[in-house]
Nucleic acid binder design. Sequence first.
DNA 1: CTCCAATGTAATCATTGAATACATTGATGT
DNA 2: ACATCAATGTATTCAATGATTACATTGGAG
Lengths: 225, 225
Amino acid sequence: MNTREAGRPYHHGSLPQALVAHAVELLDEGGAEAVTVREVARRAGVSPAAPFRHFADRAALLAAVSEVVAADFAAVQLAAVSSAGSVPFRALGTSFVHYALAHPHRFALLRTAVFSAVRTPAMEEGHRAFTHATTEMIIAGQRRGELRQADPELIRIAAQALVYGLSQMFVDDYLDAARADDLIDQVVDLFGLGVLDEHGRKGEGPDAGVVQAADAPDPGAVGDR
Amino acid sequence: MNTREAGRPYHHGSLPQALVAHAVELLDEGGAEAVTVREVARRAGVSPAAPFRHFADRAALLAAVSEVVAADFAAVQLAAVSSAGSVPFRALGTSFVHYALAHPHRFALLRTAVFSAVRTPAMEEGHRAFTHATTEMIIAGQRRGELRQADPELIRIAAQALVYGLSQMFVDDYLDAARADDLIDQVVDLFGLGVLDEHGRKGEGPDAGVVQAADAPDPGAVGDR
DNA sequence: CTCCAATGTAATCATTGAATACATTGATGT
DNA sequence: ACATCAATGTATTCAATGATTACATTGGAG
């Protein structure tokens, strides 16, 4: 963001931030393996060795990228939680899947760096906040009688596994991303019968809709890059 | 498997198979990125250029690895389906998660190579067979009155998303792998209320059990490498 | 104004994927 | 039996990359 094309002084001024920004670019373009130190340095207009003044090695650079991406992800998700209505589960799940679809390579990085038992302290905070908010949301739903009285942690884990799996299946092109919204709604409705209490259910017949999987070759469905 | 240490003749005899076998070894040890052409050649006892006589490039070698792994995975899953009892959903999901936990790097490869819209013809067959078997299993369950009369494709996709997500969360160490079996059972019970019809339900109270997530640092849980 | 620590550069090395020219072998046809 | 040759493996080489080391430049602290 602050590349300082004019003059090209010896000292960049804000190399670390610029390096991370260019690394995120490369991540979005071609995944984590496309984030090479040299290419990042090239885009920042510095020598191939310059990044090593600020990051011990490539892994450290990727860790910094993970923190930036994690912060962005957490912000988007928390915004979805707070702006959602009384039964925000669908909105939250939709937001999660949408983020994965919009930034598939970031999602892959988040999987290994944030949705993992090994997190940096900076990520730990955002993740804990998100987990706490989600659990509170579930407990509140139970207090309002919308959710079954099962263990909130179990409900959270199960819902997250469902959303996690759907996101990954869309990203992997196993499911047609164009039908993401439809599928999310239908899956939530189907499994929601087990989670939502009577009050929260939608009045819907058994054979609501027919789903189309992307089993047959379906060119031009996912428009990533 | 057929490395012929004795004599070391000029011609290996079965280099392609040996290369793929060593590549699978490397995959299991360090993931797809650890599968380097040179290391595979080294383990097979041939020159670094020899593999290129049989595989156009590294991607072709990995594709061959994908086919072998896909065949193994399909065999294991189909065995789980056929050996399962009358309501085999739990057994099938458990088998899926167990495979992912036992071979996390294979699971990652399968995700991008097999659980994807772009498959080689060889994989297409196995995958189609598995999908068909699963759907037939669901339809049979519906005929026996064990499952709700929702679209079988929707049920299959939703169940797969749940299993997919749980597997990935275990592999990513987001959930404690030691509690995999417990969590699978509890999650299936919870969401099963939406899928299983009255006959298939287990008589169980609302607060069945408490789940432990691996949120807190929990060293020495997943024993992969 | 001088010094110096921070920051960037140049040069270098090992590893890897990949290509090319060459060597070896065993099967095949006569 | 024997020459031929396509298949198979080797030696060599090149570019890209991660990483290290010695050196150059800069701007601020004393």
